[in-house]
Write a protein that binds this DNA or RNA. Structure first.
Lengths: 202, 202
DNA sequence: GTCTATAGACGGATAGAC
DNA sequence: GTCTATCCGTCTATAGAC
């Protein structure tokens, strides 16, 4: 454990408020662009009080990233090697799209971190993430070999699903501006389903 | 004109050095995360000297964005409404992928700006960009109506091409970490070609 | 055109009273 | 646990010599 466990109700409540405010700030401005003043104000407490709960700016950011990485890859782990290939891949894409709709701030936090060179999580990318992708890539390659989906580069297919789905959270401002309205996730789901089906079904 | 034209050779050279250094900094850290010290050092001059050429941090950033927006949409404008639909769309995707390969910093500059809410270019998105996408969407819709490509949501197809191609510049660190190597653009081109062909050909 | 020096605001973090 | 006051470093930008 890097930090002591919260015990009292007020500790739990304040830590949660800080993390939520931090997510607002870091996802909107990146690590260097966010300020403790801003986070403290959003969380409804003074800056020294905020620093009573977290050792510093870095500690808040790190806690958010760890929390995120812990759950961000779950949809990928849920792919069933024994399931129907098209169903499994489309289901994965849908779960990722759901994440973009339900947790856009988390998506943008992650995007900011990667965009700026992933200084805090580089080892995670070439460690856990690479290992997991390698595993799934074997499954997808087998499906292609068996002719159950079209020939496809497994890793680039995964990149495609990441980019297609995360785009709706990370570039939300642009999507909304171009469409002229904000409620686009149902249309996006239909579109992605059709596109991926066309690209994958033999 | 918002700024006086550079005249002497040394002015041209210094302004170019500043813009290049600014592109480095802003694309890597976002607007608020980048510093003038960093830009001045990369450009090889003192901070006051840098400010002799540009009015301030904002002026450098704005100049970079204007320069970028001016050329960023050219590949989209090159789509020929009278050409072969699949060829035109795949050609567009390839041109966008070339941009990600040849101008990754510009892609990340744009991504940072959008990710952080597009404060400097919001009017451009709902103005010029929306108008251009609306035009192309009509062409793509006609192609679909004529049965020359599969039924597809034109605007979401454009989003898909943007996300698929820009991902290779914006998430370069992650792509490299997962693949274990850096020279992936040829593979990406083959993959995108196959995927889009499968998704589009009737 | 380029520099040193510095103003003035803001950033993260701490001291110490309550 | 929470606050006010404050330290100190960094940031953008300017003054003014050369």
């Amino acid at each position: 454990m890097t930090s002591s466990r919260p015990r009292t109700r007020i500790q739990i409540k304040n830590r949660a408020a800080i993390l939520d405010a931090g997510l607002d700030a870091f996802s909107a401005h990146g690590f260097r662009g966010a300020t403790l003043d801003q986070i403290a104000e959003t969380a409804g407490m003074s800056k020294p009080n905020l620093l009573y709960y977290f050792g510093g700016k870095d500690a808040i950011y790190t806690a958010l990233l760890e929390q995120l990485l812990d759950t961000w890859l779950d949809p990928l782990r849920e792919i069933d090697p024994d399931g129907d290939p098209v169903t499994e891949i489309l289901g994965y894409a849908q779960r990722k799209l759901d994440l973009s709709r339900d947790y856009p701030r988390e998506s943008r936090l992650f995007a900011n971190e990667i965009l700026q060179g992933a200084p805090h999580i580089h080892s995670h990318l070439s460690g856990d993430l690479k290992a997991l992708v390698d595993d799934i890539a074997i499954v997808i390659a087998r499906w292609a070999d068996e002719g159950r989906i079209k020939a496809v580069d497994p890793r680039h297919l995964i990149f495609s699903i990441w980019s297609l789905t995360q785009h709706y959270a990370d570039f939300e401002v642009q999507v909304t501006a171009v469409l002229g309205h904000a409620a686009y996730f149902d249309d996006a789901a239909i579109h992605l389903n059709r596109m991926l089906r066309g690209a994958l079904e033999p």
